[in-house]
């Protein structure tokens, strides 16, 4: 049964959220249920190791390796695993590709689903009520708030991640990058361009 507990357990904890975390952590540690070192390792993983540079490598490879691109579009989970990117909140991946005709944009209206192994922890705006509520109904206005103005004849496809499928947007490759290697290309790939709220950087 759903738990509509009007005397909700969180009300037993201190009101300040930083102290609330501290209280939970101390209690679980005292009960022998968490290893503080494990918490540090989790934080370090997502603060420093797993982030949008992973996704940028996938995009750059797709841009300059047509066979990889084909594998990525066919089975993104397997293709990303080739580069060593897999795991929690990225167990089932799908890549969607932007073209002159179509622009893809990803949201999770029900919570905050996001491809962690490729992009890390989602930015604050991705988890905000405004983005979750509006991305599906008025994606073009939302894009304008990111400074992105699409041509009127470009179709917008919004992907609402309601299941355990995680979406990666492959932004359009900027012009003037012919012959660039993957590292140079990856520097043009922003986090927002892989969510679909931005475009890849144009070379200076």
């Amino acid at each position: 049964m759903p738990h509509d507990d009007h005397d909700h357990p969180h009300s037993l904890l201190p009101p300040d959220p930083a102290l609330r975390v501290k209280a939970l952590e101390s209690l679980l540690e005292a009960k022998g249920l968490i290893d503080p070192g494990a918490l540090d390792a989790i934080i370090d993983t997502y603060a420093h190791k797993v982030g949008p540079r992973n996704g940028a490598q996938v995009v750059a490879r797709a841009w300059n390796d047509p066979e990889f691109r084909a594998r990525l579009m066919e089975d993104a989970t397997a293709a990303c695993a080739e580069l060593g990117f897999a795991g929690r909140q990225g167990e089932h991946l799908v890549a969607v590709e932007n073209t002159a005709e179509t622009h893809n944009m990803v949201v999770c209206t029900l919570c905050s689903c996001y491809p962690w192994p490729l992009l890390g922890i989602p930015p604050g705006w991705y988890k905000s009520d405004a983005y979750r509520a509006r991305a599906v109904r008025e994606p073009r206005q939302v894009l304008a708030e990111f400074g992105v103005h699409l041509p009127e004849d470009t179709r917008v496809h919004v992907w609402d991640s309601t299941a355990e499928i995680r979406y990666l947007v492959i932004p359009e490759r900027p012009g003037g990058t012919e012959g660039w290697d993957a590292d140079r290309l990856a520097a043009l790939v922003t986090r927002d361009s892989m969510i679909g709220t931005g475009l890849a950087r144009v070379p200076a």
Binding site: A47, P123, S128, D129, E145, F146, D160, D192
Partner: peptide, 22 residues
């Protein structure tokens, strides 16, 4: 939590790409 399509939430406020993860 089921808020897709709701009106009234105001603008989305993008974070800079290099904002801290936490």
């Amino acid at each position: 939590h089921d808020m897709g399509g709701r009106f009234g939430d105001g603008p989305v406020r993008p974070d800079p790409e290099d904002a801290p993860v936490f």
